[in-house]
Simulated scan of single mutants.
Amino acid sequence: MTIRVLLADDQALLRATFRMLVDSCHDMEVVGEAADGDEAVRLARIHRPDLVLMDIRMPGTDGLAATSAICADPELRDTRVLILTTSEIDEYVAQALRAGASGFLGKDVTADALLAGVRTVAAGESLLSPLATRTVISRFLAAPAPGGPAATPGDLTSLTAREREVTAWVAEGHSNEEIAEKLVVSPLLVRTHVHRAMTKLGARDRAQLVVIAYRSGLVQVAPPN
């Protein structure tokens, strides 16, 4: 299966570089390029890509607004957004995750890491480093979005005790392998628990599961040092 990628960045040179990398792989292809958020949303609706590689800071409609529009569109429910940013510690990144993005990469990422990230997110996983989870997410995602409904502990009542436990470990930035080691179970079983928790809570991917865990109070925000 070929991963269909839409590039959204206002810098033509970066788009050309990303296109060259993506098109060099047998399992992915670029289906379009956008120089601003409005164009990204328009092309996403035309091409229905598997993944949008989205810059946050673009003139006019920025990547944050475009991410929100794409992730809120039921016709694009199978499209994932991977954010490009200059810093992992960035409030805009947290807002993008809250809006539905599946993860992010720094613009200084290596070619191999970029391609691996595209494959990871296109497969339905999220791309959240432990640093992002423990700092950006805990600082910014615990608070409800302005004007939006707040998650409550009751949202988690459908989960089993083990699913709640696994969700908490995910929210703290642990991989399936790390969680499996802590619980003395197989990574496959952990993956099953994560998938069931996502299904029950309506999370489109692991990133959204983390948001729910913080906003519901399952995981508490660490006090500042």
Rank of each mutant, 00 (worst) to 15 (best):
I46L: 15
L51N: 01
S87C: 08
A72L: 03
D55Y: 06
P153Y: 10
V166M: 05
V211H: 03
D108S: 13
R19P: 02
A101D: 03
F104A: 13
L183H: 02
A151T: 05
D10Q: 11
V170R: 14
A122L: 08
V211M: 02
A132P: 00
R45V: 06
I70S: 03
V22S: 07
A34N: 07
E91G: 02
L21H: 14
A123F: 12
R45N: 13
R191S: 15
L115E: 13
R215H: 01
P187Y: 12
S186L: 12
A69L: 13
A180M: 11
V184D: 15
S129E: 04
V5H: 04
R57N: 10
R204L: 05
D205M: 06
D55V: 06
T2L: 13
L141G: 02
A207Y: 04
L189R: 11
V194I: 14
L43W: 03
A222D: 07
G32I: 08
K107I: 05
L131E: 15
V194E: 02
V219Y: 01
M58P: 01
T160A: 04
F140N: 09
A132G: 08
F140V: 07
A123K: 09
G154N: 05
K107P: 02
G37H: 07
N225R: 13
T86I: 14
T157Q: 14
M28V: 12
G60V: 05
V5W: 04
A8K: 05
L64F: 11
T86W: 00
E91M: 07
S138K: 12
A180D: 09
L218A: 05
L43C: 04
G124E: 07
A150K: 13
A145W: 12
S102P: 03
V5I: 12
A66V: 07
S68C: 02
M1C: 07
R191P: 00
T157V: 13
G154P: 08
D155S: 07
F140S: 06
T67A: 07
E29R: 15
R206W: 01
A16I: 07
K200W: 02
N176A: 13
L201F: 06
A99L: 06
M28T: 07
T61K: 15
R206D: 04
A180P: 08
S24T: 12
A65W: 03
L127N: 07
R15A: 11
Q220F: 02
K107A: 10
D23C: 10
L115I: 14
L156H: 01
L127I: 10
S102T: 02
L201M: 06
V118S: 05
G154C: 06
T110A: 08
L159G: 09
P144V: 10
P130Y: 10
L53K: 09
D23T: 04
V194T: 12
D205T: 10
T79H: 04
V190H: 00
A123S: 15
L14Y: 11
V5T: 06
A35F: 08
F140L: 08
L6F: 09
N225C: 01
V170D: 03
A168F: 01
